[in-house]
């Protein structure tokens, strides 16, 4: 495989002899599958995996390749699957992949909500309604109004995403909106603003998940990357509860291998192996993003 353009990789300050906590994988609960690679129909200015049209650092994953990882995950006792990208719906076989996986466990699809067609919605309704496991659809919004959202995602994106959310609810899929909580945002106030906006837009049963800001990918270029003080270096091991960090219970597979979590798929040090079986070892929490996860107690998962 050819090397990606290194210039867009997040920059990790070189360790200067510090000691970083070693994080065990307690159990593989969540298997993230970057099914669409870094391919996306949008090119958001804050994308933490720097996805966009023609971005092929991580390639689309073949259906058989996904099936292989799903089978390996099941053999390890995986609880649930997450499909991400890029934008999963740029993958021509996304619905087939979901149909393959959903009989084996809960699936969540993370989408920008701009590529729903009536056929796709009907198929999602059929898949979600017929399965004994939940099919969750998560849609990202970057502000409770078009002025903020479209700044990141391009003109008209907010309106298209709202249309997508309404269509999902109409099809019984009860989407989860994900939004970023900036460093200065009050969680309760932000949540209320989103929920009010979503209700006013016609959503009857809005669901919302807030995520902290990660200084990765284009976001690092847009604002700033991690600074030296944003680190878990030299933290006493007894002060870390491994279960507080999602990497105690997840792995992320892309066309380039298995990574410790869905955030660090562009970090060479976060590549744990070629197969899931090779990726069960401990991970050194040396990245600035590890600091964000630890401080906020966040998980990329639904709950």
């Amino acid at each position: 495989m050819s090397s990606p353009a290194l210039s867009i990789l997040p920059r990790q300050p070189a360790p200067r002899g510090e000691s970083f906590p070693l994080q065990p994988l307690l159990h593989l609960d969540s298997l993230w599958i970057q099914v669409a690679g870094t391919s996306c129909n949008l090119r958001c200015t804050h994308c933490f995996v720097s996805a966009g049209p023609g971005e092929d650092r991580h390639a689309l994953m073949a259906r058989a390749e996904v099936q292989r990882h799903v089978a390996q995950g099941l053999a390890l006792g995986v609880k649930e699957f997450y499909f991400t990208g890029g934008e999963p719906f740029v993958h021509p076989e996304m619905l087939d992949i979901l149909a393959d996986t959903l009989p084996h466990g809960p699936c969540t699809l993370l989408t920008n909500g701009t590529l729903f067609t009536e056929r796709r919605l009907e198929e999602l309704r059929r898949l979600g309604g017929g399965a004994r496991f939940s099919l969750e659809i998560r849609v990202s919004l970057d502000g409770p109004g078009p002025e903020e959202h479209d700044t990141f995602r391009g003109r008209g994106a907010f309106a298209r995403t709202l249309e997508g959310l309404l269509a999902l609810e109409h099809h019984g899929l009860l989407p989860i909106v994900t939004a970023t909580q900036g460093p200065g945002d009050d969680a309760l106030e932000l949540r209320e603003r989103y929920v009010r906006m979503l209700r006013e837009a016609g959503l009857r049963r809005p669901r919302l998940k807030l995520l902290p800001l990660f200084r990765l990918g284009r976001e690092a270029a847009r604002t700033r990357g991690y600074q030296a003080v944003e680190t878990l270096a030299d933290l006493p091991p007894e002060s870390i509860d491994p279960a507080r960090l999602q990497c105690s219970s997840c792995r992320a597979v892309t066309s380039r291998g298995v990574f410790v979590c869905p955030l660090l798929v562009d970090e060479p040090a976060a590549r744990m192996g070629r197969t899931l079986g090779e990726s069960l070892g401990a991970f050194r929490l040396a990245h600035g993003a590890c600091f964000t996860c630890y401080v906020t107690g966040m998980t990329c998962g639904n709950a």
Partner: peptide, 24 residues
């Protein structure tokens, strides 16, 4: 069995996971 406040919802647990809990 592994955590007092873990939510085991029917639709959110694969068979593979529940088998693992039983094994473990």
């Amino acid at each position: 069995p592994r955590r007092v406040n873990e939510f085991l919802w029917e639709s959110a647990c694969s068979d593979a996971f529940l088998e693992w809990l039983c094994d473990r």
